[in-house]
Design a binder for these strands. Structure first.
Lengths: 195, 195
DNA sequence: ATCAATTTTGACAAGTATGTCAACAATGAC
DNA sequence: GTCATTGTTGACATACTTGTCAAAATTGAT
């Protein structure tokens, strides 16, 4: 490498995720991204070709972090507690971020999914991964005799639940409401306390 | 009235709802609305002041229809069947519309809620109404000994479920998946078949 | 039929966003 | 230290969107 990039790509993508999360895909301009990252617009165009590509990169960056985060929160040996902890952490993450930004992936799905097949694939791929992680944990729970039900369907259902909570956050920005929702959902699920 | 409006306001709002549903708030331009409605841009500005107001009117128009629709689908005397019918109808409505448009209110919440306090209020007001309708049906179910649980929390949870399904529609546009989700959710709920 | 109020129409101005480019700066390799 | 390569910078052209306005058209009321 000869001319080396001045800005830290990691930082820029982190900030891009923030900006896209809080303004949404369409309302975010390259100028916004330039201002927030401190990188000139021209440099962004040089590094990424355009907004779509930058979004794409930011999204990959986000999913890498998020999926790791999700898996980390499902570690508790009691299945119901594991999922409770997961949702608790998701809600914390949604609410505790400075100035209520909103869920990056949910906003992306609502706004950008239909934009192009690549982005659509990348978004469904993310949800699929989420589903797999949850399904695996549920399979484990079944093995541990802590859950009786269809792991596949339940995982899909739980993925949908995370999306619903993300929408509720946008509307009410009320942590108690979000907590009530996932607790109600988890209480209804056929978990069994360990034998 | 002297100079009478040429276009049918009802029709225009119907179409506006369609356009906002399929493109989202930000991506919808006044030109889009003019093209789709066949009403000149200038006339739209004359009738409504700007995009925000037009959106506001379209939203009210939408909620009037939607809440009536929701109540209509909850008529079945068996509570679980009533809610199953409701979700079935919601999914139909989401999927059967020409060229997969997406849920108007969910898109609005994700994109427009933070725009201004008025719109925020109007969106939460809509969700609140939805919640009340569901809570009333659940209260009835409790009276009928068809349900045991907290009507308030469950209603909120179900509102969130409708939002989650709307997001899933955007990502996958897969009716079977959406059906699986609400069936899983309803199967987990503490309904009792009538005594 | 005329009038007055209102809508419609198309053009205009201003602002915003995108994407490109040429000149310039920086730096690793030799 | 020079060079070649790449990144940075700010300006530019283009396109899009919004909102306004004056002139023209329309129509209910008289």
């Amino acid at each position: 490498m000869v001319g080396t990039r001045k800005f830290n790509e990691e930082d820029v993508l982190d900030i891009a995720v923030e900006v896209f999360s809080s303004k949404g895909f369409n309302a975010t301009t390259m100028l916004d991204l330039a201002k927030e990252t401190g990188v000139q617009r021209g440099s962004l165009y040089n590094a990424y070709q355009n907004k779509d590509v930058l979004f794409f990169k930011a999204f990959s960056h986000f999913t890498d972090n998020f999926l790791t985060f999700i898996e980390g929160e499902l570690q508790h040996s009691d299945a119901k507690k594991a999922f409770t902890q997961l949702f608790k952490a998701i809600v914390e993450r949604l609410c505790n971020d400075k100035e209520a930004k909103g869920c990056f992936s949910t906003r992306a799905i609502m706004e950008a999914a239909q934009k192009c097949p690549n982005i659509q694939l990348c978004l469904t791929g993310f949800l699929d991964s989420l589903e797999v992680i949850m399904k695996n944990r549920l399979d484990q729970a079944i093995t541990d005799q802590q859950f009786i039900g269809n792991a596949q369907s339940t995982a899909r259902y739980l993925v949908s639940l995370t999306r619903g909570i993300a929408v509720i956050e946008r509307a009410y920005n009320d942590k108690a409401r979000m907590t009530d929702i996932y607790q109600t959902a988890l209480d209804y699920m056929p978990f069994k306390t360990a034998v």
